[in-house]
Design a protein around this nucleic acid. Structure first.
Lengths: 220, 220, 220, 220
DNA sequence: AATGAATGAGAGTTCATTCAT
DNA sequence: AATGAATGAACTCTCATTCAT
């Protein structure tokens, strides 16, 4: 390993340290309290040092945001080993929830936080977030084609499933389930995933949920 | 009307003015930009005056939070006029969503914002939030007893439905659906409510979603 | 004197204190070293307090800038008591120089400093600065009409005189005359004013200095 | 050429590169925006490298300052080819102005900027700046001896002429003439040079401008 | 009841400079 | 000779809050 390589490695290490620390702060004190200064304090460097590794605060958030989507997608891809599309869809739900609960800071940044970084809003977010959505949608489509889910507008179905798991994740992450113990929450989550999915299995009747195709064109 | 009464009345008036103004600022400029100073400017009093009516900023948020729950509960109660429990459940979903989308700032405060006030976490939240949850749960129970929903753990079922509508509301409020146009989102929401509810209608088979009773005792 | 009046007075006092202190710092350490913090330190208030009296740093500079022009104009007006236009012109030169040397900080801000405040550049500067220039120009014109100065383009003549006194003032203020003692500088300044003015007195010949009228229209 | 010589040469090359780059930045972005980092970036070296060639930022400015005086003096010397001392004096004025307007950053550094380097004030400045002043003074003296300028204290006369051209240059460089268009400024400058010089030509009368000799001894 | 005046704490960011390698 | 890494000190500005009046 040459000198340049080692230096590059060191640099990456530092970036990771900063990102990890930012995440820890995020988790401990909420987004509003992430500050460059606090990160610096925690890693025992000066604030100015942070700027050697990241252009500004936004870049830190942006990087974390993307990392989160990479990991989520990786987990989604892992479900591809399952052949049965329905079973795979079920697994996707579990995978989504476990990603969220194991990485609440990432999840928050990705799906809850308001306007985390200006860059994100601009363009790329759509792509990187859409990839995960499309993956879900394709799985749903496959289920429908196989007659495992009732025929319905695919976007409606995908959005429904997404909403459900997002609802679970975000209620827990933002502490709206504190009436239940941790153990109880575990039961609820598992039960809820089954309840919903078993519920909507195709049982030979039609669901009434709007036109089969969404008007195309998207947001303007 | 005695002097004390009149004074109390005046005080209430002022509190309401402050709350209303805070809410307006919420709506107009987003939560992060609410400041005591801005509220004061808008009502043409000095910042210090605000502190005569509210202990601190948190108390303002806390009060708004409770107001929100009052309104939500009021809307939930309005569904009682519907006799058919399933129809009523459906209506509850719609009522929930429309409350959220018509009052995104309230909804945010109630179900999304992190620690809107430390107090909330402490004690009262449970009561005021629970009331709405219990209301939903009772409706679910009624449906099950009437054989309209498959037998399942009531908490699981209620939590599932809540998660679903909360997921919808919070994805929209926190701008995670910008790929879709406003119109499309309307379709998705309506469709999704139907998709889920029609899906889980009782069709004579059992759902596999955990023990029928949650262990009691709650969190701690 | 009512309470409101007294309060207003106090406020004005504080503003003046801040302005005076800013000027002192300016004088002692140059423009680059004026900082809100330093001003605050010097008057033994917190930095935040400054912002109660001035919107931002620019407003401080802008105010000083205008104050300077007021004072200069006041001094220019004082020459109006002199009837002989040539004598008055001579007095104007002296008045200009003495303003500059007695208020080097103001002078610096007004005529030397680079881009002191964004506002100044915008619009008003022209007006407030032009007033002084026009005053000089009218005096020059009067002298020409009275045959006391050789006929020449008025702008050229006014600009020449202005350049001369500005040159004197700015060389001294920016310490480019340190080879000379203070006393010597006094001689030089006095002598130079006479040298120039007596030099260009009308002695019956024409000066060759360009077209009599400047193209109108100004800067675009 | 020995090794040491070559090394010395390389060193000089690098110094020149740094100086040239600093100057370019000066020109492009104004003095306040020069930073060591920016210079380093532009020449594609690290900031630390700059410090191998210059003790600190001040030394860079100081060196540029001296370069400027070299160039100005070179231009002054070029007027020696003109035999008629009055014509030569006129040419000196033009040469001075054109140096200033063609190299506003140098001029600023030399005659306007406050304390470009603390060193300058110390000792050398006098020598290097004085050389140009003495050159002017000798020319003035020659004119007087030839009866082309009225008898007067030579320092007063030289200072007057210097003040005038410096006034012109510095008003323009520091943007105090923006009421006039670029074209108009051209007229004004040309006209002003003539106006002043033609004005003070010897027309057989005495000017009243102080004692013929300045007290010697200078500043301290 | 109302507030003018004040502030400590803290935000993000930039800079000239140093030093071990 | 060159530099990557690091930093202390500074900047402007904003905020929630207090308190004497």
């Amino acid at each position: 390993m040459g000198i340049t390589e080692r230096k590059e490695l060191e640099k990456q290490k530092m970036r990771k340290l900063i990102l990890k620390t930012a995440m820890k702060l995020f988790l401990e004190e909420g987004f509003e309290n992430i500050t460059i200064r606090r990160i610096a304090e925690k890693i025992e460097y000066s604030p100015a040092t942070i700027y050697l590794y990241f252009k500004d605060k936004d870049e830190i958030l942006y990087t974390l945001h993307n990392e989160g989507f990479e990991e989520l997608y990786r987990r989604q891809l892992s479900t591809l080993s399952i052949k049965d599309p329905l079973q795979r869809l079920r697994e996707q739900g579990e995978v989504y929830i476990s990603f969220a609960l194991e990485n609440p800071e990432y999840y928050d940044l990705m799906f809850i936080m308001r306007g985390p970084a200006k860059k994100i809003i601009e363009k790329k977010e759509r792509d990187i977030g859409m990839r995960s959505y499309e993956f879900l949608k394709e799985n749903v489509e496959e289920c429908m084609e196989a007659g495992l889910l009732p025929e319905a507008n695919v976007d409606v179905a995908a959005f429904s499933l997404w909403s459900h798991v997002h609802g679970i994740a975000s209620l827990i992450i933002r502490d709206r389930c504190t009436t239940f113990s941790g153990e109880q929450i575990g039961y609820l989550v598992k039960g809820s995933l089954n309840f919903m999915l078993d519920g909507i299995l195709n049982k030979g009747h039609n669901l009434n949920c709007g036109p089969k195709e969404l008007k195309v064109g998207g947001n303007q």
